[in-house]
Design a protein around this nucleic acid. Structure first.
Length: 396
DNA sequence: CTTCCACCGGAAGTACCGGTAA
DNA sequence: TTACCGGTACTTCCGGTGGAAG
């Protein structure tokens, strides 16, 4: 038994090594977190942000910045690119400068954001247990005794503010008032313009001291980016410019999202690799598009809590019968299912919220509709693209 | 013009959990 | 050990609402 499985492993490794043509030479270069040395078509933005931040090198506090742009337009890449460059320069000039990068979708609570910021200047902050005010106090204290310039980047800050309000931003924007020897600036990155309108006017004027807008890439620019990156990542014999062009066009249709485009190319390469095809073809790209969506849905569903799964199941059955569901119908079916499983059902209020959560995850489409005499409710549908995947996942 | 449906969604509160500090 | 902290996952309560029907 054991020998047998070992044999299987040997085979896998063997076939991998024996492959004559390798598709990738450095797959990491297509990874979403990788920041290349060249950022094509973002020269203007780099220049803009660099000129805002460059006073750091003279020990002057830079303005707070609000960066706006749709997903995959290079906001994060440009920001980090510039900050890293400044960090290097600062080191040479012996200027005290550090920056914190926090993605508020990953660190999605007040406590985690502040502790991430504090950690970036070398503080050790426990994962939980102490008061937020205390973490903040320690941060301010450490900044004061360090006495340099600290730049805090809050990526996807709209996501945090939507859930927790702007109290934290207010506090961070005014942190300088408590600093004697150090200086701090805030860079907010958002892909929602309307986000700015909902802010406390004091935060708005302070955070928006300077605003930078990232326009989406067009198909041509996306192609340039992909060509550039493909040169680094792929074996040149394993891919053709036509395939890259196709991937770029596909991604351009979805609002010029470079991240998606790179994902597409990477997955297409992996598919070719798996099929042991020597070169990446357009068909692989097409298949990658499906696979990305399929994989995402699968992963989301598998990490869903029990009640959310039941609600989703209820929606699927109703939609299967009538094409769409309402909150009330969903709730009734859900209660039946829960009772069958001898699980205590949750309240309708909560179910309504779970439906909204499923909507945000992209598993269903829920639109609030007023049907006059017949009341106000959410009309819930399931996107064509994911319905098969969902039924698949729920039956296992 | 008014009624009234079938919910929406904010607010406040509760229970519990994993954690720290003293 | 005990007091406390923040986050999650709910519940309870309730005012609010757009527009078809009357």
């Amino acid at each position: 038994m054991f020998c047998l499985s070992k044999d299987v492993l040997e085979k896998v490794i063997e076939s991998r090594l024996a492959k004559k043509v390798r598709i990738f030479v450095d797959k990491e270069k297509l990874h979403p977190d990788y920041i290349p040395e060249k950022l094509p078509h973002r020269e203007k933005e780099i220049e803009r942000i660099a000129s805002i931040l460059v006073p750091i090198l003279e020990g002057v506090r830079p303005s707070n910045v609000l960066i706006y742009g749709l997903t995959g337009t290079g906001k994060t890449a440009v920001t980090l690119f510039t900050l890293r460059w400044l960090e290097e320069k600062a080191k040479k000039l012996a200027t005290k400068f550090k920056y914190a990068y926090v993605n508020t979708r990953k660190a999605d609570t007040t406590y985690r954001i502040i502790s991430e910021i504090a950690r970036s200047i070398g503080l050790r902050i426990p994962q939980t247990g102490i008061a937020i005010a205390e973490v903040y106090r320690r941060y301010v204290e450490a900044l004061n005794s360090w006495g340099g310039i600290h730049v805090m980047v809050l990526d996807e800050v709209d996501y945090y503010v939507k859930r927790h309000g702007d109290d934290l931003l207010y506090k961070l924007v005014r942190v300088n008032e408590e600093l004697k020897h150090a200086k701090a600036s805030l860079i907010g990155v958002t892909n929602d313009i309307n986000f700015i309108e909902g802010l406390d006017p004091r935060v708005r004027s302070s955070l928006g001291e300077v605003e930078v807008v990232f326009p989406p890439y067009n198909a041509e620019q996306l192609e340039d980016i992909l060509q550039e990156r493909a040169k680094l990542a792929f074996n040149p014999l394993a891919i053709t410019p036509e395939v890259i062009k196709y991937a770029a066009a596909l991604a351009a249709r979805e609002h010029g999202d470079a991240r998606r485009a790179l994902d597409l190319l990477r997955i297409a390469g992996e598919i070719a690799e798996r099929l042991e095809d020597p070169i990446v073809a357009i068909d692989h790209v097409k298949q990658a598009l499906l696979e990305i969506e399929h994989g995402r849905v699968k992963q989301v569903i598998s990490s869903l809590p029990l009640h959310s799964k039941l609600v989703l199941k209820a929606i699927v059955t109703i939609v299967g019968e009538k094409g769409s569901a309402t909150t009330g119908e969903t709730f009734n079916t859900y209660v039946k299912m829960a009772k069958e499983m001898r699980v205590e059902p949750l309240t309708q209020r909560r179910i309504s919220e779970i439906v909204s959560e499923l909507d945000m995850l992209g598993l269903v489409n829920a639109v609030v509709v007023n049907r006059g005499r017949y009341g106000k409710t959410k009309v819930i549908k399931i996107p064509e693209l994911v319905i098969n995947t969902i039924t698949d996942c729920l039956n296992t």
